[in-house]
Write a protein that binds this DNA or RNA. Structure first.
Length: 601
DNA sequence: TCTATATCACCC
DNA sequence: AAACGGGTGATATAGA
């Protein structure tokens, strides 16, 4: 099958735009070449009133990282193309191996130039690309010569796409199914574009105050504590100084095999039990300092925080936005920086126990599916089915056993072992082993599915999601980029189908919600954020939840609708993480430090 | 003094 | 030998 047999027009497209920190992109030019007829459209800023394409099913738009192009189309008010093929995403899919080896599998990187090189195709050099990007980012007005240079540069990427497409075409669209799946990924890029344009509404005043005083607060806290402890040297935590303090204090602090002190919060917590008055202030400071990070948010002049969603960036196909630029990647207290604009509301909608539901349906384990839908919850229902609790048990009557069952049910999805579960819950390793065995006996179909997937992966097969995102875990010899031996991680193979199919569900929901005209703001792995005027938010939540249900049923099968938790914030309120005392405590602590700092000269 | 590596904490 | 999946990023120390 050839693409040119499937479409009347195939447009290779590249755009140039100005993207200033935190602001939506401003179009500079668009160049597109129709690959069947060979005609080229070179459109400068002032020629962008009308799209060069028809948004119909017989027109294919080909791009590299199409979210950028689609963002420009959206900014221009152009209709969304109904068929999009993103060669960036397809390259990621075709070269998707173990995370530690992906650098080897993509020796020239994942940029357009690197991908051209990967296929042995000619391209312009990096220096030229950088120079042109700088010229564009400098902003207008551009001279006539510069304008021509920018258009020509834009066209070089279009020509590159024209060369790249035949090199990748057969592997992308081998048959109708893979063709359609590639288009589904392209379709998602438009939802991504929408989210990247809209950004998240931020309380700019609070953020500005925090940014102004962050360093002074940090320094003040360190000084205050250090008078007694002396473990910070030059504003930095010093291991040697801490070692001395530990010796002075006469504490038996845990160390690793080479004698280095263990500095994990867990260890601090344990030592706090031994010597609360000594350890607690230090532990609190260390936690607070970590939480005070977060000056990376890029906020546009409209008060919206924007960052790249980085779709498909992980081996499971999850989005991977920068943790420092993405509000939901910061500590949870920082979500209180989210504040709807006047008259607006935002809603955080997350699937309940999404990966358990995915596992139940895709494995075909009706017992696990029954547990997922149990009137109690999946954890207690496991305890009941395994004979650990009576059929009438509930959360309050069997709290302790529910906690244990929860650790097992959640841990199983990650391939967690008895030792780790015992450590986490405080139960004996033998008990954890017993419970894990009970899980295997209770959910036999699930375990058969897991083992078949792991075996296929170990044999070198690609494993794949319902929509064809794929991963080959055993591909190259098991060494990393430096020749260091790698062990193929069976637990990664075990978890991959749940995480990656959950990611498919999220992407489809994003498509349906965005296309349904709901203002979609952000994806958060098993959740998404929408926005609406306060008067409309309840209705929009209802619509969005229904669409999440459809996405669930499309991925998991007829009638397999996963539940959704809802959290709505209406102006003038801000986002307060529900049922999270730690986050709220940290928020109040930081606000307190902030106002104290502001009241001092 | 700059960079690489290890450790740790955060998110789902 | 150990055994918690996928990530990003800040920080401190070691190394060049």
């Amino acid at each position: 099958m050839k693409l040119s047999d499937c479409y009347r027009e195939i447009w290779a497209v590249d755009t140039e735009y100005i993207a200033l920190d935190g602001n939506a992109p401003i179009p500079v030019c668009v160049v597109a070449k129709e690959l069947i007829s060979g005609r080229t459209a070179r459109l400068w800023q002032n020629q962008l009133a009308e799209p060069f394409y028809r948004p119909t099913g017989d027109v294919l738009v080909v791009a590299f990282m199409a979210a950028a192009e689609l963002a420009i189309f959206r900014q221009l008010g152009w209709p969304i193309p109904s068929r999009v093929l993103d060669l960036y995403v397809e390259f990621l899919r075709l070269t998707n191996g173990p995370a530690a080896q992906n650098a080897l599998l993509r020796p020239y990187g994942v940029g357009l130039l690197g991908v051209l090189e990967f296929f042995g195709l000619p391209s312009i050099d990096h220096a030229e690309k950088t120079a042109m990007r700088n010229l564009i980012m400098r902003g207008g007005p551009w001279t006539e010569v510069e304008r021509l240079a920018i258009l020509n540069y834009c066209e070089t990427d279009v020509v590159a796409l024209e060369r790249l497409l035949p090199a990748m075409e057969q592997r992308i669209i081998g048959d109708f199914e893979t063709h359609g799946q590639a288009l589904l990924r392209g379709r998602y890029m438009s939802a991504v574009a929408g989210m990247e344009i809209r950004g998240l509404p931020v309380d700019c005043d609070l953020l500005r105050r925090l940014n102004t005083h962050r360093e002074a607060i940090t320094a003040g806290l360190i000084d205050e504590l250090n008078r007694q402890y002396g473990v910070y040297v030059g504003g930095s935590f010093n291991e040697a100084a801490f070692d001395e303090w530990v010796c002075r204090s006469g504490l038996e602090w845990p160390r690793d095999s080479s004698g280095r002190l263990n500095l994990q919060d867990d260890t601090f917590k344990a030592m706090e039990g031994v010597a609360p008055a000594l350890v607690a202030p230090l532990r609190e400071l260390r936690k607070t300092l970590v939480q005070l990070r977060g000056k990376g948010l890029q906020v546009g002049i409209d008060g919206r925080a924007r960052t790249s969603i980085r779709p498909f960036a992980s081996v499971t196909g999850r989005n991977q936005p920068s943790n420092r630029e993405f509000v939901f990647g910061l500590g949870k207290w920082a979500r209180s920086l989210l504040k709807p604009a006047e008259g607006m509301a935002i809603a955080y909608l997350d699937w309940k126990s999404q990966e358990i539901g995915v596992a139940a349906c895709l494995s075909g384990d009706e017992v696990l599916w029954a547990s997922y839908n149990a009137p109690t919850d999946p954890y207690l229902d496991f305890a009941i089915k395994a004979g650990l609790a009576p059929p009438n048990a509930n959360k309050s009557t069997h709290k302790a056993i529910r906690q244990k069952a929860k650790a097992i049910v959640l841990g199983v999805n990650y391939g967690k072992g008895a030792k780790a579960i015992a450590l986490e819950t405080g139960m004996h390793e033998i008990e954890a082993t017993t419970l894990l065995e009970l899980h295997q006996r209770t959910y036999r179909v699930f375990w058969g599915w897991v083992k078949a997937t792991v075996n296929a992966g170990l044999m070198g097969d690609s494993i794949r999601t319902v929509f064809g995102w794929s991963w080959r875990a055993a591909w190259l010899p098991q060494v990393d980029g430096k020749g260091k031996a790698l062990q193929l991680n069976e637990r990664a193979l075990l978890n991959w189908p749940m995480q990656s199919n959950a990611a498919e569900m999220l992407r489809l929901a994003c498509c349906l919600i965005d296309e349904g005209g709901i203002r979609l703001l952000a994806p958060v792995h098993d959740a998404l954020v929408i926005e609406a005027p306060t008067a409309e938010i309840d209705a929009e939540v209802t619509r969005a939840v229904a669409l999440m249900g459809i996405a669930s049923a499309v991925v998991l099968g007829e009638g397999r609708v996963l539940g959704v938790d809802q959290y709505v914030v209406r102006w003038p309120n801000r986002f307060i993480e529900p049922d999270n005392e730690a986050a709220e405590e940290m928020r109040l602590r930081i606000l307190c430090l902030l106002s104290r700092m502001e009241s001092q000269p």
